[in-house]
């Protein structure tokens, strides 16, 4: 049985950890609130943009613009991967990485058929140690610099797509459903994939002409989707960290409770033993006196 001092040290160390975790939870909660309200305003804009681009792309021949090009065979697939820089956020990163690896196995893609860009250190670290080649990499994404990051990712993705170096661009991120659930999402960005119902209906009148509009709005669309993915990912990260830290705090409480119980039991046992010693001692003395 550990000594009282050992148990005491352990209790105070768990209490210290608990304090840190509950502080992290509060920080995550504040950050979540901020990014969630940003995301809430950004969603209608990005959804409307997507609808219009789909409407325009659905009604015209893919040959009119290189960005609508549909490759006959997908030789190289480009993934843009959104993870966090830091850990302690539950299954936020591990879930995404596991899903991505399953996805590659299912599609039976070799490592050299895949190119990768990263926002967030965790995903990059994992994939570089798994032997993938790493393209663009950005760390420290936040609510202020995400537009700049999206801008760089967009120009490199569009350039490579137009040159034919990559045939597909897919975004991999955690979609923020609620503070408790985040959904791992694979979003195919390029080539633009149009649903059947969007190909019907009357065509638009374009001003200026269609080719020029497509050249304007498709890059902007790519940029907006990447901005959206960063926002979704940031919000999910905060939510995930908040939940993880909440659980950790509850667990620490349990541990502290158990340790305190053990401490009390041990102390009681010591007192009992000491009492027994005293009683035994007095008994022995009494008997000695009688002799």
């Amino acid at each position: 049985m550990p000594s009282l001092k050992q148990i005491n040290t352990k209790i105070s160390s768990v209490k210290g950890t608990r304090r840190i975790m509950s502080a992290m939870k509060l920080i995550a909660a504040v950050k979540l609130q901020r990014s969630q309200s940003m995301l809430k305003e950004f969603r209608p804009y990005s959804d409307a943009y997507k609808e219009i681009v789909m409407g325009v792309a659905g009604k015209c021949d893919p040959k009119v613009h290189p960005l609508l090009r549909k490759p006959a065979e997908v030789k190289k697939r480009h993934f843009v991967f959104f993870t966090s820089d830091r850990g302690l956020c539950g299954s936020f990163n591990t879930g995404l990485i596991r899903n991505f690896e399953n996805h590659l196995t299912e599609a039976s893609f070799d490592k050299d058929q895949v190119s990768l860009s990263f926002v967030g250190r965790r995903g990059k670290d994992h994939c570089s140690s798994a032997g993938f080649s790493i393209g663009d990499y950005f760390s420290g994404a936040n609510e202020k610099n995400y537009i700049e990051i999206a801008n760089k990712l967009t120009s490199s993705a569009i350039e490579q797509f137009q040159k034919g170096e990559i045939d597909e661009v897919v975004l991999v991120y955690n979609y923020f459903k609620s503070a408790l659930t985040q959904e791992i999402t694979f979003e195919k960005l390029l080539p633009i994939e149009v649903k059947d119902e969007e190909t019907s209906g009357t065509d638009y009148i374009y001003e200026p002409k269609r080719e020029s509009i497509i050249g304007d709005i498709v890059p902007k669309y790519v940029q907006i989707r990447i901005e959206r993915a960063i926002q979704e990912s940031l919000t999910s990260e905060h939510a995930s960290r908040m939940t993880a830290m909440e659980n950790a705090t509850t667990n620490a409480d349990d541990v502290i409770k158990k340790l305190t119980l053990l401490f009390n039991k041990t102390r009681q046992a010591m007192i009992t033993t000491e009492l027994m010693d005293i009683v035994n001692g007095t008994e022995a003395q009494k008997q000695g006196g009688n002799d």
């Binding site: 219009i52 009357t202 638009y204 009148i205 374009y206 001003e207 200026p208 509009i213 304007d216």
Partner: peptide
């Protein structure tokens, strides 16, 4: 109201 579908930058 009643305008034909139209897209412009």
């Amino acid at each position: 109201p009643g305008h034909v579908p139209f897209v412009t930058t």
